[in-house]
Design a protein around this nucleic acid. Structure first.
Lengths: 270, 270
DNA sequence: CTTGTCAATCAAAAACAATCATTTTCAAGC
DNA sequence: GCTTGAAAATGATTGTTTTTGATTGACAAG
C-alpha cells in the first residue's frame, strides 16, 4: 500500500468519526504502528488533521460540530434588522388557533422570537425552528419527516408521500434568495425541493424578503408571482419593485425597520 | 477508551443534565474514578464545564430548563444505572455505516451517550434523541414526520403514508413497559401506535428492558416474543425469565450493571 | 462514627520517539 | 531487458514518557 493511499484512508476515517486511534488505523491499513504514526505526524504538519495522544482527530473545532451548519450561521448575521422587522410583520398576520407553515431559512427563523406568546399550529421543515418553538413556546409543533441536512438546517424526505401532503394551513411563510418579474428564486436545489413540497399546502403564500433581494437573481425559479399572496419587505424597496408586485396582484407589506434601530438610537432623556 | 472519547461523553452528559456525578461518569465511560476526576479537572481548566463537588455541571446558564416534558424527566431518574448498562450493550451491537432505528423512550435515550463517536444512519421518532445526535455526533439523522407530543417526546403522524415506510434498517431498538410470555407490552396507546409503525421496518428487533419489567404487566400487547430477535436486560433477570426467552428463540444479552452496584455489594473482607 | 469526596502516591499499562535493519523504489548503467 | 546501487519507505526493537487505575489517608458533611 502506498503512502498516498494510507493518507486517503486515514483522512477518510478522521472525517467519519471524531477520533480514530492508531490501532484502528493499523487494522484499517495493514501498515505498522510506526508508519501510521509517521503518517499522522505528516498530515498534522499539513494541517489536514490534528494529532492527539492515542491517534488523530478531525480538524473541525470539536465544540462547534453540532447546532447548525456554517452557512446558516454566517447568513444569519447579515441584514438581521430587516429580517427581524419582516418577521415581526409576518407574525402579526397570524391569529391564535390558526395553522401555519414555516419554511426553513434565516428570515423565517427570526419569526420564532415573536411566536413565543402565540398558540398556533405550526408545521415546519426546519429543525432549529421546531426546537425553539418546542422549548420556548406553547405552540403545537409538527415537523416534516426525513433526513436532517445540517448545512441547510432543513428536514427533507426524498419521497413524495410524507406527512407534508396531509397538512394544510391558512398561511405559509417563506424566504427566498431573490425575486424578480419571473417570480421567486432560490439557489440551493435542496431548498427548492423542500419548498416545492410545501408551497401548495396553504391558502396564502407569504414571502419574507429584504429589499436588497429584489436586485438579486438566481438560477432556479421556484414559482411565479401569481402564486404569491403577500410579500413582506423592508422600506428599502423601490417604486418600480412595488409596481411590479402591484401589477401581479400581490399584496405588499412594508415593514419599518424602525423599532429595533430606533431603540438603539433613543437614549433616554433623563 | 481514549481521552478524547471520554471527554466527548462527559460533555455530552453535562449538556443533557445540569449536573452529573463522578460515579455516573465512571459508569458511562467504564474508566476509573481517578481518571474521571482528572478529566473533569482538565475540562474545567478548558472552561468546557464547571467542576463541582461530587461531579461536574454544564457551563451554560440555567436557561435551558425547559428542554423536555416533565413525565420524561421524572421517569428518567429511575433505574438509570440499569438503563445505561443496557444502552451500552445496545450500542455495542452497532457497527459503523449501519442503519438503525431508535424508538423513543427513556431507556433508548441513554443510547445517545454512547453514540457520540459512531457514524451510523439513525432514524428516530424521538425529538430529543434527534436533537442530541444532531448537536453532539456525526451520525446522520432522520426523523419521522408529524406532530411532536411533548409528554411522550415522540413525533407521530396520524397517517400511514409517512417516510417511516421508506426507511429500512438492520436493527431497531426499543424499550417497553413490560414483558411476559404473551410478548411485549406497552401502556400508552400513543406509544403503541408509534412503535407499531416502526416495528416492521427492521431486520432485527432489539428490546432494551430492565429486569424489573419482567414482572410488570400492562394492558396492551405490542407484539409476540417471536418477533423479537434480541433482549438486553440487566443481571437481575430470573432463571425462569431467561428460560422463557430461550424457549421463544430470543437471544439474551445480560448487561452488567456498572461500578455503582458492584461497589455496594463488595464488602471488604477486613 | 460513618459516608462520600478528594488529593497524593505508586505501579502497571499504553503511547510514544529514536534507532536500526530490512524491503521497496527508481533510475543510471550495462 | 536486466542488474545494481543509492535513497526512501517501512517494520521491528528499544528505552522513555504519559496516562491510567488502585491504594491510601485527609477532610467535611450528615
Amino acid at each position: 500500500m502506498h503512502e498516498k493511499e494510507r493518507h486517503r484512508i486515514i483522512l477518510s476515517a478522521v472525517q467519519q468519526r471524531p477520533v480514530v486511534t492508531v490501532q484502528e488505523l493499523v487494522d484499517l491499513t495493514e501498515a505498522s504502528e510506526a508508519t501510521i504514526r509517521r503518517d499522522i505526524a505528516a498530515l498534522h504538519l499539513q494541517k489536514r488533521l490534528r494529532r492527539v495522544r492515542g491517534g488523530a482527530e478531525g480538524i473541525t473545532p470539536p465544540q462547534f460540530v453540532g447546532l447548525a451548519g456554517r452557512p446558516f450561521r454566517v447568513n444569519e448575521t447579515i441584514n438581521t434588522a430587516q429580517k427581524r422587522a419582516n418577521a415581526r410583520e409576518a407574525v402579526k398576520l397570524c391569529v391564535d388557533g390558526e395553522s401555519i407553515i414555516i419554511n426553513g431559512g434565516t428570515t423565517t427563523w427570526q419569526m420564532v422570537n415573536f411566536l413565543g406568546s402565540h398558540r398556533l399550529q405550526v408545521f415546519t421543515n426546519s429543525f432549529p425552528i421546531a426546537e425553539h418553538l418546542l422549548h420556548h413556546s406553547k405552540n403545537s409543533v409538527m415537523v416534516s419527516g426525513g433526513m436532517i441536512y445540517r448545512e441547510q438546517n432543513i428536514i427533507l424526505s426524498p419521497f413524495d408521500n410524507d406527512v407534508t401532503r396531509n397538512f394544510y394551513a391558512q398561511k405559509m411563510f417563506m424566504g427566498a434568495q431573490g425575486m424578480g418579474p419571473l417570480g421567486l428564486m432560490e439557489g440551493d436545489p435542496l431548498l427548492i425541493q423542500a419548498e416545492q413540497k410545501l408551497i401548495n399546502q396553504a391558502d396564502e403564500l407569504v414571502v419574507l424578503i429584504d429589499s436588497s433581494k429584489f436586485r438579486q437573481r438566481s438560477s432556479l425559479i421556484l414559482c411565479g408571482l401569481d402564486r404569491i399572496s403577500t410579500v413582506i419587505t423592508d422600506d428599502g424597496v423601490t417604486d418600480s419593485d412595488q409596481r411590479m408586485l402591484e401589477n401581479a396582484g400581490v399584496k405588499l407589506i412594508v415593514a419599518r425597520v424602525g423599532a429595533d434601530a430606533r431603540n438603539k438610537e433613543s437614549t433616554p432623556a433623563a
